[in-house]
Computed example of a mutant assay.
Amino acid sequence: MCFRRDDLVVAEKLFRNAPVKCVVEWTAMVMGYMKSKKVDLAEKIFDGMPERNLETRQVRLVTFNSLTSMRP
């Protein structure tokens, strides 16, 4: 999937204004930032994800660790 700057701007607005966010929205934003090489913003979104339980947190950490290996 390719992210253009305009796509990310629209996604940021939608994400920010969403009354309820599920794991799909959180993951899409993290992936979009990572693919756009905005690792600092991806980390900020990732760290802001609400924790549901330890298992969910572990899955997110594994996912994020694999994404950060994509750093330029």
Rank of each mutant, 00 (worst) to 15 (best):
M1P: 06
C2I: 12
C2N: 12
F3G: 00
D6W: 14
L8I: 08
L8H: 05
L8A: 01
L8N: 02
V9D: 04
V9I: 11
V10D: 08
A11N: 02
A11Q: 04
A11D: 01
F15M: 04
R16F: 07
N17W: 15
A18P: 07
P19A: 02
P19Q: 08
P19N: 05
K21T: 01
C22T: 10
V24N: 07
E25R: 07
E25W: 13
A28Q: 08
A28R: 05
M29Y: 06
V30M: 04
V30S: 00
M31K: 13
M31F: 09
M31P: 01
G32M: 05
Y33L: 01
Y33K: 01
M34I: 09
K35P: 06
S36W: 07
K37N: 14
K38L: 10
D40W: 14
L41T: 06
A42Y: 04
E43F: 01
K44C: 12
K44G: 08
K44P: 10
F46D: 00
D47V: 10
G48T: 11
M49T: 10
E51H: 14
E51I: 13
R52K: 15
N53Q: 13
N53S: 12
R57A: 11
Q58M: 12
Q58I: 13
V59M: 14
V59W: 15
R60A: 05
R60P: 05
V62F: 12
T63A: 09
F64M: 00
F64D: 00
N65H: 06
S66N: 15
L67D: 01
L67H: 05
M70G: 03
M70L: 12
